Amino acid sequence: MAEPQRGTENRTETHIRTLSSDEPPSCSSLTTKELQQNLREVKKRERPVRLLFEIPSTRIIHHVLSKYVVYEIVVMRSGSFDSHRVPVERRYSDFSRFHHKLLEEFEEELEDVVLPRKHLSGNFSPEIISERRLGLQDYLAKLYSVRCVRHSPHFAKFFTEQEQKRAHDLLRAGQFKPAVEQLQNVLEVEEKLLPWQNPTLIVPTLSALAVCYRDLEEPEKASAAAQRALPPVRRYGLKNYRAALLDLLVDLGYQLGRPVAQLQEELTVLRDAERGEVSPRSLKELVVQQFP
């Protein structure tokens, strides 16, 4: 009789160990304090991600016949998980052009959002610069609170277009390493903006990175960038990018010793189905024409 009893005890112990390691405790076994803690954790995970804008510093740029102030803007996602701060610099004139573009499209929605005014004199005094820095920081926060503005392509371009142009100028000049550094910064900002922007926003940046890495003879990184660009290209029907990315990935696949039959078949089907509509240009040819 003793033997069956020991088996029963072993099974019971095993069952207890399984519950404690693999299953969460039932609500009835938790104290009120533990339930409150769990609820706080759930709320924290479900908290919507927001963008925060900080202008921590400014500097005065002196030229022979002119000088101006540039404002360092840091775009962050709310929450401690966003620890990488990528700054961009903009002049007041950049803010002014941006604001007028938005007014052309969203005049009614921006009725209560005012760009800090430019003073007729004293624009370079520390007090005026500090006042405008805080005003521009508040201006960006108010813009972001307007739904149609934060979803507008103008919003993303304000934070990325100048850097994109510099990166593509470097790429066209064959300066691939500094181009990669610039493009990586652009990608960081674009990733922060993605919840409110079309996912194709990152396609030109990833494509340019793939081209740079290819010319730097880093096929693994080139393939990774191209692979990441492909899903939004497929989903949103960017035919020219799709053919060019597939062509690059097939070539890199042969170079890296990876299977390419599926990619090759997709490329063939695409070209057959869209004959005359899909450009035969390479990814590099597409990229160098971006951001002239």
Rank of each mutant, 00 (worst) to 15 (best):
H151Q: 15
L103D: 04
H63R: 15
L248H: 03
F106T: 03
S279K: 13
E218M: 12
S96W: 05
P195V: 10
S207R: 03
L19H: 14
R40I: 01
G257T: 04
D169A: 15
P292L: 11
Q184G: 01
I202A: 09
A156T: 08
V146K: 14
L252C: 11
E274M: 10
C212H: 06
V69T: 15
E266T: 03
R235N: 11
N198T: 10
E89A: 05
L246G: 05
R40V: 02
Y139E: 01
E109G: 01
S78N: 10
F176W: 14
Q137V: 05
N185K: 12
L134Q: 13
E13Y: 07
K221N: 11
D94R: 03
V88I: 14
N185G: 14
S279G: 10
A179H: 09
L143T: 08
C27I: 09
L39I: 08
D272H: 11
E191R: 15
H62V: 06
K67D: 04
E105G: 03
D94L: 01
A210W: 05
V146P: 01
A243G: 15
L270C: 01
H151T: 13
M76K: 15
I60F: 02
Y213P: 05
K157A: 14
D138R: 13
R47T: 13
E266D: 12
